[in-house]
Amino acid sequence: MPVNVVVLVKPVPLREQDITIREDGSGINLEELKYGINEWDNYALEEGLLIKEKFGGKVFAVTLSSKQRDPEFLLRECYAKGVDSAILIHCEESEEFDPYLTAKVIYEVVKDLEYDLILCGVQAFDDNYTLTGAFLAELLNLPHASIITKLELLPDKKIAVVRRELEAGVEEEVEVDLPALFTVQTGINQPRYASLLKLRSALKKEIRVLGLNDLGMEEKAVLDERKMVVRRMYRPIVKKETNFLEGSAEEVSRKLIEILREKGVLSG
């Protein structure tokens, strides 16, 4: 029995970049950054591809993004890895969205797709809301389970058995009626890489681009529906005094060993 899967993928700033805050604290300097697939979504995508390989069916990748995050590149990567259809909801105002708007706009697109399952990440690395998936599930009137580390589908019975990560290594096994939405945790699988060859042929694939107008919404007006807005951003205030060691690798190593011996942490 084929299983169609929708995977939500978000382009987020790649790790290991300097995240700088605008002078006026109104946000991040987004234009200076490089973007790639959100870590959790990469696992969700892989899980979708594994399901397709096992049961047959289609995988749809859906992204809501502004231009500067280079969503087209991300969706080409998705094609190269094996998705059947990539949809970009292009919206410049999406940088100012709250999670209600994000979920609502994605909902307008996903509701018309033929799916048995929706997968997304536990959290987006940049905004850390951990709720877009559950919001979308609620709008679609689907059950969901979050932070899943194992997914077993029984399409004939119209159920899935999943493991949810709780804490301290404890997990919870849950049976969920299908169709359903799951938010995927890292480590559930080992995501594949897209080969250069496949990336090249993915250039020819067509990305379906939709604007808010296509969804019966208006770019600017939609922002009035927000329930939350950013007041300011700032660097966390640090209370602890850290002793930063300076010098060559050897010098800092000597200093560190000395400190640890003085503290009695290291013997000798």
Partner: peptide, 13 residues
């Protein structure tokens, strides 16, 4: 946000 590198203050309407 951003893995703990940035704090954000949100106004809920």
């Amino acid at each position: 946000v951003y893995g703990g590198k940035v704090n954000v203050e949100l106004q809920v309407k």
